[in-house]
Design a protein around this nucleic acid. Structure first.
Length: 477
RNA sequence: GGUCCCAUCGUCUAGAGGCCUAGGACGGAGCCCUCUCAAGGCUUAAACACGGGUUCGAAUCCCGUUGGGACCGCCA
């Protein structure tokens, strides 16, 4: 039988980390079994659902590379189907009309809670046959409640194994609101059944809903899917992950300069494992993923490890590919990529890959190559751009000017000859040159900087530094 | 409050009764390398929540305690 999984977010916000992992596991499971992955938008709450949220979820999934085979289906377009199902239960006596108003219910719940009692529905509309609560109530609006019969309901779960629920603990749930719109539990069951979903993989915050849903499956006579409830992702304080733990939106990670694959790899390893392996390609993930290796306990989202993975992938990837991904970040800083002189972006990227954890960092790290004017860090200039190095700067300038092959090797030779001649350490001249060329004390290796900057710009910046030193000197004397 | 779930280093985890003096990874510490910063290499600190069983033997099985989490809506 073909495996069919689904991701069913409600469009009331962006795609967050937890949702993304649920989507990923569903996707991996379907891909692993060469089945189908379906996207369904659960927008039955008309008041809270927005098109922007739907779009945000679509964007997030696309960025992560989680493509779907069917959908997106919208529950808001299937209301007739849910209504039919609700009325079928009404006709067969498995559900009943409830004339209590939302306000009454809310008041009773509050009272119960205040008295420390379980906030259960008292079942007052249950015993009366449909419409029996006064004939005049026929034109009164009513909701439809599902009748939960006594007994126990067993949830068979791949991850949590068997969980038994006493039906006494389950309220008669409303399946159709008094305004005629269906509610969550009805919709999921109808959809999962009619969409022939074979494996329901979702967060374990739904575990308590599952017996209700099983009862509905049985009432409709639909076959049960296989359930797998994923442990939650928590924040650093071990409470449910939320905004106050930092970025939880998937797209925020894109903006912060993360690679989608790093997030995917991180999320896959949060709750699932394959021995000691940490690094996975997408292919390995789909090949090795299984629900049996998903852990039972909730996990804390660890941004540092995600950062490490991102850094890892930046280091390991081809400079050309990284240059492509870097471009939007450079543009955001005001550098029009198409027009940044003669510098080869991939070559430049190569010099900063191992020192950039994100593309935001990388954009900062390469900025000095493109800046029109080098701005010196004050303390650095103070310390390193001194009259002592004037002569050396002059020598380097002239030697670079006459260098036949402007290669890293040849540049290094120049420096070596100088330190041999002057009997000084490389650090003595590398650091001043670094300030002159980049403005700061931190940069890629000085020879690769010079090579990538090119003869013209290097000499220009050295000359500028010479002028700077001379001016500084004339000031102090 | 009720119901349900969970419990190995700070964090993610390996571990399916003897292979465990508990392994890996992130993060931390130290050393090496070194033109700065990184990267890299090496070393190191750090955990089976607690108490009872079962067993020749338990991180692994059972029970309890404690701790954490989720859910109890005419939200999804």
């Amino acid at each position: 039988m073909e495996v069919r999984t689904r991701f069913a977010p409600s469009p009331t916000g962006y795609l967050h980390i937890g949702g993304a992992r649920t989507a990923l596991f569903n996707w991996l499971f379907a891909r692993h079994h060469k089945g189908k992955f379906i996207l369904r938008i659960e927008d039955t709450d008309v008041a809270r659902s927005t098109d922007e949220s739907t779009q945000a979820i679509l964007d997030g999934m696309q960025w992560l590379g989680l493509d779907y085979d069917e959908g997106p289906y919208f529950q808001s377009k299937r209301f007739d189907l849910y209504r039919e199902h609700a009325y079928k239960l009404l006709e067969t006596g498995k559900a009943y009309k409830c004339y209590c108003t939302a306000e009454e219910l809310e008041q009773r719940r509050k009272d119960a809670l205040a008295q420390g009692k379980p906030p259960k529905y008292d079942g007052r509309c249950k015993s009366q046959g449909s419409g029996a609560r006064g004939q005049g109530s026929n034109d009164k609006s009513f909701a439809i409640r599902f009748k939960v019969s006594p007994g126990t309901t067993l949830v068979k779960d791949i991850i949590k194994s068997n969980v038994a629920f006493d039906n006494n603990e389950i309220d008669d749930l409303i399946i159709l609101r008094s305004d005629g719109t269906p509610t969550y539990n009805l919709c999921v069951v109808v959809d999962d059944a009619t969409m022939k979903i074979t494996h329901v993989i979702r967060g374990d915050d739904h575990l308590n809903n599952t017996p209700k849903q099983i009862l509905l499956y049985e009432a409709f006579g639909y076959p049960l899917p296989i359930f797998a409830h994923l442990p939650m992702i928590l924040g650093s304080d071990k409470t449910r992950l939320s905004k106050r733990h930092g970025a939880t939106s998937v797209m925020a990670y894109k903006e912060m300069g993360y690679m989608p694959h790093a997030l995917v790899n991180y999320l896959a390893r949060l709750g699932w494992s394959h021995g000691d392996q940490e690094i996975f390609t997408i292919e390995e993930l789909t090949e090795k993923f299984s629900l049996e290796n998903v852990g039972k306990s909730s996990g804390v989202f660890n941004p540092e490890k995600l950062l490490w993975l991102n850094h890892h992938y930046i280091k390991e990837s081809k400079p050309y590919d990284m240059a492509k991904l870097l471009e939007p970040f450079l543009e955001a800083k005001g550098y029009a990529v198409g027009t940044i002189h003669e510098l080869s972006l991939p070559n430049v990227v190569k010099t900063v890959q191992e020192r950039s954890k994100t593309f935001v960092e990388m954009a900062d790290a390469v900025e000095f190559y493109f800046k029109e004017d080098v701005v010196y860090e004050e303390k650095a200039a103070q310390k390193f751009l001194t009259s002592e190095v004037l002569e050396i700067f002059e020598i380097i300038t002239s030697k670079l000017d006459n260098l036949p092959d402007f290669t890293q090797k040849a540049i290094e030779d120049i420096f070596n000859s100088i330190i041999n001649e002057k009997n000084i350490k490389l650090g003595k001249i590398a650091q001043p040159v670094r300030i002159a060329l980049t403005g700061g004390t931190v940069s890629p290796g000085i020879f690769e900087v010079i090579e990538n900057l090119g003869r013209e710009k290097t000499i220009e910046r050295l000359k500028k530094a010479i002028v700077f030193i001379k001016q500084k000197g004339s000031f102090s004397t």
